[in-house]
């Protein structure tokens, strides 16, 4: 079975640390997850997300620090806003907005990190099968 490629933007201070902790605890998560480290989720341009989709990613995750926990004060809020806007744009052009997900995560939340990734991968699989069904309907 082909694993959906999930490009995940992790901030250097919280979610990247959570990812390392998940690894340290040998927690398994979907193989398609590819993590890109950014200094702060505020650095994630909407273009990065579009680029990931253009390169074949099935979904993009942006994981910022918990509200109030951003090392750069406001970066996570900016990232949240940008993701929301991009989701709206996706909806308006008929792409499933669920393919972009923003979430807040603290450095010690390795458990939740794995949960978010697994849920997201599952969601993408559902979207995929729905897409395939629709295609079958169209061709028949």
């Amino acid at each position: 079975m082909c694993e959906p490629v999930i490009v995940t933007f992790c901030c250097n201070h919280c979610s990247y640390e959570a990812a390392d902790r998940a690894g340290g605890a040998r927690k398994k998560y979907p193989e398609g997850v590819r993590i890109i480290k950014v200094p702060c989720t505020g650095r994630v341009e909407p273009e990065f997300i579009l680029k990931a989709f253009k390169c074949g990613a099935e979904g993009v995750l942006v994981l910022g620090c918990r509200p109030g926990g951003c090392h750069f004060k406001i970066g996570n809020y900016k990232a949240y806003g940008r993701c929301l806007l991009l989701r709206k744009t996706f909806r308006s052009v008929g792409i499933e907005e669920e393919r972009i997900r923003f979430d807040w995560i603290d450095a010690n939340e390795d458990e939740r990190f794995v949960k978010i990734l697994s849920e997201f991968a599952e969601k993408l699989r559902q979207l995929d099968s729905r897409l395939r069904r629709n295609r079958l309907d169209l061709s028949s």
Binding site: V5, I36, F48, G56
Partner: peptide, 15 residues
């Protein structure tokens, strides 16, 4: 740099 990294990790060199 980030674009290049995305191309590398997704395995899509020439999108």
């Amino acid at each position: 740099q980030i674009f290049a990294e995305i191309e590398g990790i997704t395995g899509c060199a020439n999108p």
